[in-house]
């Protein structure tokens, strides 16, 4: 198999006595969607936080594109090409949808210390940002402040921002959360097309989406990965059925 883009080895993180991440190892390969599932409180978001750099791991290594990124802060990891979305939408609320995406375009260009040229008339920011909004189907709402967007629209905006970074890997934390069945279905087919742009580590509760999308699935329970495999292997795994699927089936 090809070299993994993201390589996590024996990652550990405790909050007092709680082992939120207890020796997690995981590989994300090019062209793949790797789903991370597990019951509530299993430590999925905590893991995403450690990979993206918003939380420091206690021990273990995270290699991205062959480089140990453990010592880098969130912004530096994002600049290397690690784009994340948030479980609870995290946007610049007063900015329009368009300005939120423009911020990502300007970040990608590494050009935030420019003090005079006005962004409001800067086609080199507006045009690519608009293209991203069109891709996620949010172009008609470009001028609306993020705070006034609907829940589903905010989720779309999060995706558009991640896309705008032209990342080397996506980390999506429950992108379907709170979306209706129709929205989930649309987003599922959209994410399906993204795997060839960059591999994706996908935390998701929507099992239909996970089984439709994932090339590999890892099951996280109490901070440990109890199984990793293809969709079929995971469906058949007795431990998984007992620990997780059994609860929802």
């Amino acid at each position: 198999m090809s070299e993994p883009i993201l390589e996590i080895r024996d990652l550990r993180k405790s909050f007092n006595a709680l082992k939120a991440t207890d020796g997690v190892s995981l590989d994300l390969h090019p062209g793949q969607i790797h789903a991370l599932i597990g019951p509530n409180g299993a430590g999925k978001s905590t893991l995403i936080h450690q990979i993206s750099g918003s939380l420091a791991a206690d021990s273990g290594t995270i290699r991205f594109l062959g480089q140990d990124i453990g010592g880098l802060d969130m912004a530096a990891r994002a600049r290397l090409g690690l784009a994340r979305s948030f479980q609870i939408s995290s946007l610049a609320q007063e900015f329009s949808a368009l300005r939120n995406v423009m911020l990502a375009i300007q970040a990608k260009e590494g050009s935030s210390f420019r003090f005079f040229r006005q962004v409001a008339s800067d086609r080199s920011l507006i045009d690519p940002a608009m293209a991203m909004l069109e891709r996620v189907g949010l172009a008609a709402r470009a001028k609306v402040p993020a705070a006034e967007l609907s829940h589903g629209e905010r989720r779309q905006l999060e995706i558009a921002i991640a896309l705008a970074l032209s990342p080397k890997a996506f980390l999506f934390d429950e992108p379907m959360a709170g979306m209706g069945p129709e929205g989930s279905k649309q987003l599922t087919s959209f994410l399906d097309g993204l795997r060839h742009e960059a591999p994706m580590l996908l935390v998701e509760h929507d099992m239909d989406a996970v089984f439709a999308l994932a090339d590999r699935i890892s099951v996280l329970v109490y901070g440990r990965i109890i199984a990793t495999g293809t969709v079929d292997e995971i469906r058949r795994d007795p431990d998984v059925r007992r620990a997780y699927l059994g609860e929802t089936a």
């Binding site: 993206s52 750099g53 918003s54 802060d73 969130m74 912004a75 530096a76 994002a78 600049r79 784009a83 994340r84 948030f86 995290s90 946007l91 610049a92 609320q93 007063e94 900015f95 300005r99 939120n100 423009m102 911020l103 990502a104 300007q106 970040a107 990608k108 590494g110 050009s111 935030s112 210390f113 420019r114 003090f115 005079f116 040229r117 006005q118 962004v119 409001a120 800067d122 920011l125 921002i161 705008a164 970074l165």
Partner: peptide, 28 residues
């Protein structure tokens, strides 16, 4: 001028949501 510039965008985004700014790769 600063308010409307790229720097100003980043600065206002830092006020609204520093985590968002870091997540796109700009150090707040």
């Amino acid at each position: 001028l600063v308010e409307g510039s790229r720097f100003g965008s980043a600065l206002q985004a830092a006020r609204q949501n520093g985590v968002r700014l870091a997540a796109v790769g700009i150090p707040p």
